[in-house]
Design a protein around this nucleic acid. Structure first.
Lengths: 244, 244
DNA sequence: GCCCTACCTTTGAGTTTCCTCAGAATCGCG
DNA sequence: CGCGATTCTGAGGAAACTCAAAGGTAGGGC
C-alpha cells in the first residue's frame, strides 16, 4: 500500500533534498527555503546521520557542509555514492576554503556555495544541479532557462535581461532581485521575505536596502514604459505584466 | 515517511493544528478562531507537552510561541521535525525579537507573526503555510487562491481585488476586512467579532472603526453597482452576491 | 408623526510607510 | 595603488493609512 502510493506519487512528486550541517538553525532555515520552492527537504546534523538518511529518504540531491563533527564532507559524499552514485551534492564551505580543490568538485557535475550564502543562491544551484542530473523527471522540459513576464525576459544562463527586445544592464544584486521577483510573478513578496532570500541569510542590515534596489530596478526596467514593478503598501512588492 | 504518505490521502479531512503558548487564554482564543474556520485545533502549554501532543495528534502545522517556560521554540520545532519533518511551524514572537534570524525562518516554509497579532493574521498565515505544503506534495499546480463571491474576486497571493473584472485598490486594513467578510459569505458577522478577528486581539479602541471601514469598502466595492455589503441592524454585516 | 437609537459619512490630525537623493564604505580590476 | 562600479546607510520629504470626533441620516417603536 505504502509502496503503491509512493509509486503513483512519483510522477509528480517534488524534488527531495537532504540538508546536512552541524548547526541546527541553519539546517532549518535552508530546509524552509527549499520547502518554500515546493520541494521536500529533511535535515541531518552529522555524517553518520546523513548517510543513513540518504539511504532511507532517497533524496535527489544533498546539501552538504564540508566540515562535520564526525566525518569530512567528501567522505560522506563517497559513502552515499557507493549505493546511489546518481545523487548530486552541493557543498557548503567556508569562504577561505582551499579553492582549487573545490573547483575540482564543481567540474565533476556537483557544485558548492561559500558561506555565508543567500538562500536564493542555494535554490539556484540546486535547480541547475537537479536539472543537469541524469534522472529525467516526467513533465520537465529541458528548455533554456528563461523567465518571462509580459515583455520582460530574463535569460538565466546568459545572465541577460531584455524588455521588448531591448537589452537592460543590471548589477549582480539587481539581477538577483529581479530574478526572485520574476520567479514569483503576480505574487506579493514582503520586504523581509525578499531580504532573507536575496541577501545573505545572516545579513544584519535594514529592510531599507530592498526599497533602494527596487527603485534602481524601476529606473532601469520601467523607465518611461508602463510599470511592471508595483508597491503594495503595507505588504510588499509585485511584478506583473504591464496593463495593456 | 509513512505519516507523510498518509497525509496525501488525508486531503479531504479538515486541517489539524496544535497551538502552543504558556498563556492558557491565548491558546483558547486562537484555537477558537481556528475551529471557527472549520479546522481542528488542540492546545499545549509547554515544550514537553507540545512534542508529545504533536506525536499523538499528528497536526498539519503548529502555532508555536518562541518563549516557553521549559524549552526554546526552535528546539521544540527541531524535536517535532525529527519524527515528522513535513509539519509546518508558525512562530509567535515578541515584537522586538531578533528580526533577521526570524526573517530567515519566514523566508522558508515556516513563518512567524509578532505579538500582538490579529487572529485573522494567524488564520491567513496558516492557510498559506498549509497550502504551500499541500501544493508541494501534489505537484506544482500553482492554483491561485481566490475567494469568490458573486462577481467579486479576491486573489490572496497577488493581494488583488476585482469586481466584474475591474481592479479595486484597497489599503491593508480594508483588504483584511474584506477578506474576513469574504471568508464567511452570506453570514452575519457582528462588529465585535470583526473587531477581534481583523484588528489586534488586544485592541482597546471602539467598535466604531468597523463602521468606518465598512463605509470605505462600500465606497470602493459597491460604488454605483448593486450592493454586496449589507447592514443587518442590531446584528452586524453580511457580504453576498448582489441580487440579480 | 415624533423621537430615539443605530448607523453612515465627512473632516482633520497623528502616525506610518515609502521614495529619493546624496555620500560613505566596499569590491573588482587594471 | 587608483579608478570606477557596486552596495549600503542616513536624512528629508511626500504620500498614504489609521483612527477619533462630530454632525447627518435612516429605521423602528410609540
Amino acid at each position: 500500500m505504502t509502496a503503491m502510493l509512493a509509486n503513483i506519487a512519483n510522477q509528480t512528486e517534488p524534488w527531495r533534498f537532504l540538508v546536512v550541517d552541524d548547526e541546527p538553525d541553519l539546517v532549518e532555515v535552508v530546509c524552509g527555503a527549499l520547502r518554500h520552492e515546493g520541494w521536500d527537504a529533511v535535515g541531518a546534523h552529522d555524517g553518520r546521520e546523513a548517510v543513513s538518511a540518504a539511504a532511507t529518504y532517497q533524496p535527489d540531491a544533498v546539501v552538504l557542509d564540508m566540515m562535520l563533527p564526525d566525518m569530512d564532507g567528501m567522505e560522506v559524499m563517497r559513502r552515499i555514492h557507493t549505493s546511489r552514485p546518481e545523487v548530486r551534492v552541493l557543498f557548503l564551505t567556508a569562504r577561505d576554503a582551499v579553492e582549487d580543490r573545490i573547483a575540482g568538485i564543481a567540474a565533476g557535475g556537483d557544485d558548492y556555495v561559500a558561506k555565508p550564502f543567500s538562500l536564493d543562491e542555494v535554490v539556484v544551484r540546486l535547480r541547475s544541479l537537479v536539472r543537469r542530473s541524469a534522472r529525467g523527471r516526467a513533465g520537465r522540459v529541458a528548455s533554456p532557462d528563461c523567465l518571462v513576464v509580459g515583455d520582460l525576459v530574463l535569460d538565466e544562463a546568459a545572465r541577460e535581461v531584455t524588455r521588448g527586445g531591448e537589452p537592460i544592464e543590471l548589477s549582480p544584486k539587481e539581477f538577483a532581485l529581479l530574478w526572485f521577483l520574476m520567479r514569483h510573478p503576480r505574487q506579493v513578496l514582503s520586504k523581509s521575505q525578499i531580504l532573507s532570500e536575496v541577501w545573505s541569510y545572516d545579513y544584519g542590515g535594514q529592510a531599507h536596502v530592498v526599497e533602494l534596489y527596487i527603485s534602481y530596478l524601476r529606473k532601469k526596467i520601467d523607465a518611461g514604459r508602463p510599470a511592471m514593478i508595483h508597491t503594495v503598501r503595507g505588504a510588499g512588492y509585485v511584478i506583473k505584466a504591464a496593463a495593456p
